[in-house]
Computed example of a mutant assay.
Amino acid sequence: MTEFDLTAYVKRGCAITWDDPALEEQIEEAKAYLWDIAGTSLSFDKPGNATSLLKNRVRYERNGVGALFEVDYRASLLRLQLSEGLKGGASDASKN
């Protein structure tokens, strides 16, 4: 089994066929956004709800409609918050 490549996953999902130096920064910003929404650190090391949301967040930002992301993905973002909250873990910020 091959290792999951988040950058390649996002590139495929956003139809990016060239090397874009801004992509890694956009991925990191999307991670921070989703960590904030979830209230905890999320893993992006395999396909799933978090990686799908990350891919789509990057796609929206690249297309200049980042403000619409929360509206269009409200149900998925709420599901993410609930699933992370049900795990019962404390926020990473409160562990310090």
Score class of each variant (00 low, 15 high):
Gly39Asp: 05
Gly39Thr: 05
Glu3Asn: 14
Leu42Phe: 03
Gly85Trp: 00
Ala22Phe: 09
Glu84Thr: 12
Val65Lys: 08
Ala75Ile: 12
Glu25Ser: 11
Glu29Thr: 10
Gln26Met: 14
Lys55Gln: 14
Gly39Ser: 09
Val71Gly: 09
Val58Trp: 03
Phe69Met: 07
Gln81His: 01
Leu86Met: 13
Ala8His: 10
Glu25Lys: 12
Ser83Leu: 08
Phe44Asn: 05
Met1Ser: 15
Trp18Lys: 12
Gly13Phe: 05
Asn56Val: 03
Glu84Asn: 02
Gly66Pro: 01
Phe4Cys: 10
Arg62His: 02
Gly64Cys: 03
Gly85Met: 06
Val65Tyr: 05
Ile37Leu: 04
Leu53Met: 08
Asp5Cys: 13
Ala8Tyr: 02
Lys11Asp: 04
Cys14Pro: 03
Trp35Ala: 02
Ala32Arg: 12
Leu86Gly: 11
Arg57Met: 02
Phe4Leu: 12
Leu68Cys: 09
Gly88Glu: 05
Asn63Trp: 08
Cys14Ala: 14
Lys46Gly: 01
Asp72His: 14
Leu77Tyr: 06
Asn63Val: 01
Ala38Lys: 04
Ser94Leu: 15
Thr51Asn: 03
Lys46Glu: 15
Leu82Trp: 09
Ala50Asn: 11
Glu24Val: 13
Val65Thr: 08
Arg74Tyr: 13
Ile37Asn: 00
Leu34Ser: 07
Ser94Ile: 10
Ala90Gln: 05
Leu34Ala: 00
Arg62Ser: 10
Arg79Gly: 04
Pro47Leu: 00
Asp72Ser: 08
Ala8Asn: 14
Glu24Lys: 14
Lys46Pro: 04
